[in-house]
């Protein structure tokens, strides 16, 4: 049961989220047109209102906070891994007579919120030799295709890399409780 104060707070939060969405959409609209004028601003507001009215999305529960240090660590590591993974895939793609073997592994995330699942899945797809094949949203499990498996150790490494990636995302945008949760579990621990 929700009291009147709680309902009000939820409504205020929903309003705030909607205004952030409108701001983001208007910004994208202005960037698309390439210059800032009253006409473009008005057009952007109309487009944003239309998007939010006709294509409403479920509310994202974001109760973490942005941490600059975590964001920089994540971004820096992300760029390094993107470059490394790209060169790796490009190399095995062009290596003559080499057929890479692969594996599909299940990785259970520590924090199974929609936001964390989405961010981790996006980052995993872009980063180190891994690609999402399927997602179990209720269980918070990512099924990941790992390219170029040469030994069983490669699979263990990929599993650990994904857990470290999730940690970096939580350190960048997670809530304090989530951060405590991921820090209390060692990286090598297998989740049931």
């Amino acid at each position: 049961m929700t009291g009147p104060g709680q309902g009000l707070r939820a409504r205020v939060r929903r309003w705030r989220e909607q205004w952030i969405a409108v701001g983001g959409l208007v910004l994208i609209w202005l960037l698309l047109w390439g210059d800032i004028s009253w006409g473009n601003l008005l057009g952007g507001l109309l487009a944003a209102a239309a998007v939010l009215v006709f294509f409403p999305l479920p509310a994202v529960t974001f109760d973490g906070r942005l941490r600059l240090r975590g964001l920089l660590m994540f971004a820096g590591r992300f760029v390094v891994e993107l470059v490394w993974a790209s060169l790796h895939v490009a190399r095995i793609g062009m290596q003559p007579g080499y057929t890479p073997r692969s594996a599909i592994i299940a990785v259970r995330l520590l924090v199974p919120t929609d936001l964390n699942l989405t961010l981790t899945a996006e980052a995993v797809s872009l980063v180190p030799g891994t690609l999402i094949v399927d997602v179990d949203r209720n269980g918070g499990v990512l099924y990941v295709h790992v390219l170029d498996v040469r030994a069983p150790a490669d699979i263990a490494t990929a599993r650990k890399e994904i857990r470290l990636l999730e940690r970096r995302i939580i350190a960048a945008v997670g809530s304090a409780a989530e951060l405590r949760q991921v820090r209390s579990v060692p990286v090598d621990k297998e989740l049931p």
Binding site: L82, A85, S86, V89, A90, P100, L126, L131, L147
Partner: peptide, 21 residues
């Protein structure tokens, strides 16, 4: 890579990482 990799899943690797970079 897209041409040479043996199956669809491997090809998607080539289509995401080096292509995005």
């Amino acid at each position: 890579g897209v041409l040479r990799f043996p199956d669809t899943l491997s090809r998607m690797h080539a289509a995401t990482k080096p292509q995005v970079l």
